[in-house]
Every structure is written in C-alpha cells, then in structure tokens.
Amino acid sequence: MARPRITLTLPALGLLGLIAGWIVFEDLGAPVPEPMTDAVERPRYRLEGAHWRRYDAHGAPVLEATVESIDYFDDTSMELTGIELMTRGNTGGWQLRAPLGSVPASASRMLLHPQVEITGAPAKQPALRIQTDSLWADWQARTLSTTDPVSATAPDRTIEAVGLQADWDARRLRFLHAIKAHHAPHR
C-alpha cells in the first residue's frame, strides 16, 4: 500500500526544483544594484561654464554665481569648481571667490574652500578684503560664517582673527575671536 506516497513525492520534488531554478535565474538576470557609494561619487550630470542664479520664494535673486563646473548627484548634493559668487542682499552683497565648493544633500548652503576670498561690494564700504580657508554661504539663513582663522585688509589697516560671521548685504561682519588689528595712520 505504500506506493502512492512515493508517486506524490516525485512531482513535489520536481516542483521544488523548478522553483529553485526560477529563483536562481531571477537572481542572475536582475541588474546588479550599484553600490550606494559609487552612485553618490559619480555625478548624475555635469554643467560646465555655468552661470547660476538662485531665487527666493518671492522670485527675488538670492545669489548669482559663475562657475567652471557643477556636478549634480542623485542625492541632490553638488560639487562646484572655479566659483565667483555674489550674494544678493537688499542693499548690497559680498563677492566670494573660491576654487572649490560643495553643497551637501538637500542643504541650502554651500561650503566654499581654500583659499576663499571675500570682498565687500557696496559703494559706501571701503575695499574690505578677507581671506580664510573655508566659508559657509547659507542662502536660507542669509549668512556667511567660518570658524577658521581669518585675515582682512582695508585701507590703512589689517585685521587677524579666528572665526567670522557676516550678513548677506555686506553691511555687518563680526570677527569672532582673538582679534589683532593694525592701523597705520599716515600724515
């Protein structure tokens, strides 16, 4: 009487074999998912010789930049080279220059890095020229900031400090720590 069980077991084994084969086939055929890091390091697309203007929610320009290249990545981060950026405040703006810049994923600010140069743009501002290793330009908070050492020059004076915070309009700029200034009045 034992025979029906054997006959039942064979088709079941066959069916199992088919399913296993299908799974293996599926695995082989499926595109190999790119490793996450590779996707993030390789830009989705690149612009070269770009003029980049950003607007705020009301359509007013917040910043204008000319860049040698911009790499856009899938995670919305960006890497920029050869940056000349002008902040667009209500009454004026800073001019920023840096060889490199990076915008983290989904961020509203850019890290400019070395050597970053900042110059005061408005007419009333005597030429103020500042240099630092890195600088955050935040178009949401409309501020510039760094914690790096800073050196600044203006007519007849130089200023050394650590750390800096500035508005977007080039009207106020704070040197945060360890200030040493030299004035050289002449007759």
Binding site: P122, K124, Q125, P126, L128, A152, A154, P155, I159, A161, A170, R171, R172, L173, R174, F175, L176, H177, A178, I179, K180, A181, H182, H183, A184, P185
Partner: peptide, 15 residues
Amino acid sequence: PVTLTADSAEWIEGG
C-alpha cells in the same frame, strides 16, 4: 602704527 587687540570685533558699513 597702532595695534588693537580684543576678544571680538564688528566691521560696520562705512568702515
């Protein structure tokens, strides 16, 4: 030449 030192400083429009 005059040297100034301080904890912090602020540059205000107009110099």
